[in-house]
Nucleic acid binder design. Sequence first.
DNA 1: CCGGCCCTCCCCAGATATGGGGATGCCGGG
DNA 2: CCCGGCATCCCCATATCTGGGGAGGGCCGG
Lengths: 249, 249
Amino acid sequence: MQNELTERLVSDIHSAANEESLHRALTDAAARIGFDHFALSYEKRLPAIGRSAILLHDYPDAWARVYIGFELGGADPVRRAGERSMTGFEWQHIDRYIPLTRGDRQMLSVGREHGIGDGYTVPRHLPGDASGSCSFVVRPDRILPADALDVAEIVGAFALARARQISGAGFPKERPTLSERQRECVLWSARGKTAGEIAIILDISESTVIQHFRTARERYNVHSGNALILCALFDGLIGFADIFDWRDP
Amino acid sequence: MQNELTERLVSDIHSAANEESLHRALTDAAARIGFDHFALSYEKRLPAIGRSAILLHDYPDAWARVYIGFELGGADPVRRAGERSMTGFEWQHIDRYIPLTRGDRQMLSVGREHGIGDGYTVPRHLPGDASGSCSFVVRPDRILPADALDVAEIVGAFALARARQISGAGFPKERPTLSERQRECVLWSARGKTAGEIAIILDISESTVIQHFRTARERYNVHSGNALILCALFDGLIGFADIFDWRDP
DNA sequence: CCGGCCCTCCCCAGATATGGGGATGCCGGG
DNA sequence: CCCGGCATCCCCATATCTGGGGAGGGCCGG
């Protein structure tokens, strides 16, 4: 497998402007690196119907219909395994990540009857925001192309990133910004501290802490500390890791 | 960049049995693909108890000490950007993911004074379970090796997967769960509503809303509504889409 | 049938947050 | 040089949250 191929496939995916062209780019990529099918799923958390969710695939129609049924039942073992893995994984090793129930094995079996054999799934999650996966699949009579898995890892990751942008994520808008002190106060508040405690931590007066909160709320034009924290979190001014990680190093 | 090299580096990382050997493997990998330093951070969230964490790096001692200070303040822009990206990203493009505050720019500047120039960070998140990132860094007088970024993407991903196994990913995650009514209350609270307003929205008594919050806080073992909302958001019980789509339709 | 969970509602008291109004000093850019 | 942003501190009053107690009815599975 050549690095040049990876670069060209990623380039094609990155230049996809909409779902259709991303679909074409992935169909092409899957074939070129030795797979028979692909499937990409991206969704924001509990999205309004169809608005910020993307589902692309070139599965056989019969399997696609059956699969939707399993999905609705939350019975897809591949999806569950994707919530426990930091890298792509082969479906044949799925029981290393989750226990397989009888229903899971049945679903995989039904898949094989519909031309879906082994697969390699690349999962990605952004806490509180979005989740997605990109799978590359071979027919039941074939085995996964071992030398293509790392290419699949890269291609899948960038396909998901592209789907995220197409679905309208990112922050093109001009957002309010907080001063350093204001940000610190919001962060400690997110960590569950009261204004009085924050005053001690930052070694300033409680009045000052309250004043920072007041100014910050006015910046975002919100009237509750809850909303303020969420705005700062959504804008990336504070991060989950900073919030949950503050206990000892 | 050869695919053979990628495979060998991944193989080395995958055979690392403990933190020390993973450290050696990453030191070697960073050098071989054209970087000067690496840093790997992995944190697993344990229910109500605390966390287990791994931090490996070969940064200069002076910078490591300064960096810890920034970390405690939650001021690391790289970490925040890692929560908004599904792929690795170059530090020079960090403002495509999050807005950079004055403190952020100062931190990056101080880093350059300590021999930390541009970098490429591979982030991974498993909501409700774990988060981590693996960065590859060059000195301030160098630019990132463009042809090595996809190798870094793969190596970083597998290094994180290895760190996850070393830290003991075995035990299952027992996440607190909220009832439907409790979740509704948390969601409306995240949208900035007070208990009294939520009572009107849900057409129940304010006392009941307060009771739901009380029970939910006990579930997560937190003592503030702020922390409750953040736990629910991190675990995926509510999502940014629920909160902000409602505001700007 | 009973125990457990959920939803509903109420009381109280103290802690905390929110929204006004002030004030001082520092710093950097126009 | 002055002005605006920033950080710091104080006053007030009201609204809201937090944590403790109690209560009843519905639903479901052992």
